[in-house]
């Protein structure tokens, strides 16, 4: 337990937290409550009239097959993105831990993709894998693999997952490298003397001891995959082909901003909010219990 700081002045502590509270209130609670309020309204397309309709918007959303499809797409997309980005980052971090010469340079290079904006990252991947002009797409075709993310939903999903995961690898890599460094070397040596070979050492010692890092990244990556990947999807597939890459966030945007169904869109964002809160709560409640903090 860290010692409690006692302020002699009653007002000062509130003043100190006030800026943070103000930001949270203005940029989070206010828009969130606006969304909740709007989700109970039905507006005409020009925004001139609005009618209070209780939970009609939610009923509409939940009975829409497009919305259920979007839920499924989001689940596939988020789980794949989080898994791929974390697995690749962990692999690279373990490898980087063995690099002795040029370690700093290697790490610096690994961190660069994080500086690329999501939309730009999406465009990069879009060009690389564009069926007609993409250099990597041509490579795939010459290997005899049929590749067409513009027509094939699975290909499109692979493309957006790759782009989204690629961008997050750097971030995960940084944390995994730090996590690996925090594991005392003597433990690895003790395990080696105890007869555990490299793979065994990884799964029985290193991986369990990395659990706090992995857990943290799981939460961060889930939130990332749910929200921050809008730019990538918007730039690469626009939710298509059909609705095969239309995630919940993208659908909020297309229903609200493109189709001007403000009430429906607001209802969707409220549902999304509930999903994220529930997911994070579940992660903390159930996964964290299995995490060993050294």
């Amino acid at each position: 337990m860290s010692p409690r700081v006692v302020f002699p002045n009653k007002v000062l502590p509130y003043l100190l937290v006030a800026p943070q509270l103000a930001i949270t209130l203005i940029f989070f609670y206010w828009p969130a409550s606006q969304a909740v309020y709007q989700s109970t309204l039905r507006e005409d397309p020009f925004g001139l009239n609005s009618k209070f309709v209780w939970f009609d918007n939610f009923k509409r959303v939940l009975s829409d097959p497009g919305y259920l499809n979007s839920l499924q797409v989001t689940a596939v997309f988020s789980v794949s993105t989080a898994f791929v980005s974390m697995a690749v980052a962990l692999l690279l971090a373990v490898m980087a831990d063995k690099v002795i010469k040029g370690r700093g340079l290697y790490r610096t290079l690994m961190i660069w993709p994080y500086a690329v904006a999501p939309a730009i990252a999406g465009m990069l991947w879009l060009f690389l894998f564009s069926p007609s002009i993409g250099s990597l797409a041509i490579g795939l075709r010459s290997l005899g693999i049929r590749w067409d993310p513009l027509l094939n939903g699975t290909d499109a999903m692979i493309l957006v997952v790759s782009a989204a995961a690629w961008k997050q690898i750097s971030y995960n890599f940084l944390f995994f490298v730090a996590g690996l460094q925090a594991i005392p070397k003597a433990l690895i040596e003790a395990a080696a003397i105890d007869g555990a070979r490299e793979t065994k050492r990884f799964w029985t010692i290193i991986f369990p001891l990395l659990a706090p890092t992995t857990f943290f990244l799981l939460v961060v990556n889930t939130v990332y995959a749910l929200f921050d990947t809008f730019g990538i999807i918007h730039a690469v597939t626009g939710g298509g082909p059909g609705r095969s890459t239309e995630t919940l966030v993208y659908k909020v945007y297309s229903d609200g901003a493109l189709n001007q169904l403000m009430g429906v869109s607001a209802a969707q964002s409220v549902i999304l909010m509930v999903i994220v809160i529930a997911l994070t709560a579940v992660q903390f409640r159930y996964v964290e219990r299995k995490v060993h903090y050294g």
Binding site: A186, A190, A191, I193, D194, K200
Partner: peptide
């Protein structure tokens, strides 16, 4: 060989039993 380290290097995520059994299991 077996080694006793200065800071013991016990596996923090394992119980005492598993710490001792680890080498035998391997």
């Amino acid at each position: 060989i077996a080694m006793v380290f200065q800071n013991y290097a016990l596996y923090p995520h394992m119980k005492v039993y598993d710490n001792m059994a680890y080498g035998l299991r391997n």
